[in-house]
């Protein structure tokens, strides 16, 4: 399996998609840095400024997260199915290796690369905010916890793609990945709106509608829990040691935090997807 991990990692580095996303990321970080340099030109200490700065940070992380998801799709959508479609799989699986080793090897190899990339993106966005004089005081624990959840989302997304790529064709996996990510994103927004409606006490009708939206969000989180992990990330990053949280504000933050049960679900979600993908792949005729 170590061989598969090693060569998967190597292959990703040599892929044109990786180069493309890297250039895109540099471009994004440059534009973001330019924006920050203008925003922080006239610093002040008002609470509104701090809230605004938290929004700028959240927006930066939201789009960085989006680029990482883009990289996950581009580099892993054909991880297994591409090997089958091109015929390279014949010379690999006729060797004395088990099929699950290929699935897990691909997952781990891609995970290492994605975690590295995702961490660079996260630390760059947070680092740029600190560099330009953001008034949000981050503790190391905020940054490390935020980093953990920022990296976790793409890994969960990768598990879905690898499982799908082990069972379906590259095109079908691409459709599944994009649809699932879109549904999770929309579901997350609906859940936020639902929570806002409940919190703003818009009457019995509003409360009921809010609850329906929250339920819709929970269901989409079960399909692909990336949005829920993203919200946990913003909560961990922006909740101060004093207990004051800036995460409850705005479009890119989150009004509700996922429960511990959701994270237990996420753990089993990843394990199940990899197990099921490997099992179905082992039963496939190639």
């Amino acid at each position: 399996m170590i061989t598969i991990i090693k060569y998967t990692f190597k292959e990703m580095l040599k892929k044109r998609a990786f180069l493309l996303v890297s250039i895109l990321s540099l471009l994004y970080l440059s534009i973001y840095a330019f924006g920050l340099s203008r925003i922080f030109e006239h610093p002040s200490n008002s609470i509104y400024d701090i809230i605004f700065q938290s929004q700028i940070l959240s927006a930066g992380l939201f789009f960085a997260n989006f680029i990482v998801a883009f990289l996950v799709v581009l580099t892993s959508v054909n991880a297994i199915s591409g090997e089958i479609e091109s015929g390279t799989i014949y010379s690999i699986l006729s060797k004395p290796i088990k099929r699950y080793e290929l699935v897990l090897g691909k997952f781990i190899g891609l995970s290492i690369m994605i975690v590295l990339y995702s961490s660079i993106m996260f630390l760059s966005v947070v680092g740029l905010n600190i560099w330009f004089g953001s008034k949000i005081s981050f503790g190391w624990d905020n940054i490390l916890k935020g980093l953990f959840f920022f990296d976790l989302g793409p890994i969960v997304f990768l598990a879905l793609i690898i499982a799908s790529s082990s069972i379906f064709s590259t095109i079908n996996t691409g459709i599944i990945a994009i649809m699932a990510y879109g549904i999770a994103l929309v579901g997350g927004v609906l859940e936020q709106i639902g929570t806002a409606m409940q919190q703003s006490q818009v009457g019995a009708f509003g409360l009921k509608s809010g609850e329906s939206l929250i339920n819709a969000g929970i269901i989409t989180s079960l399909i692909l829990p990336t949005d829920v992990i993203y919200r946990k990330m913003t909560a961990e990053l922006l909740t101060q040691s004093s207990g004051i949280s800036f995460m409850t504000q705005g479009l890119f933050g989150g009004m509700s935090q996922p429960s511990i049960y959701m994270f237990i679900y996420i753990f089993f979600y990843v394990v199940f997807l990899l197990y099921y993908g490997a099992k179905r792949f082992s039963q496939r005729d190639l």
Binding site: K6, K14, G87, S91, I92, S94, P96
Partner: peptide
């Protein structure tokens, strides 16, 4: 499959590797 060698009919190999890298990869497998 431990003592088996196989040349598939529709042979295709990872084209991003060099010949030597490809042989090293399969030797590792």
């Amino acid at each position: 499959r431990e003592k088996v060698g196989f040349l598939p009919e529709n042979f295709r190999y990872h084209d991003w590797m060099t010949g030597k890298e490809l042989l090293s990869f399969h030797a590792e497998l």
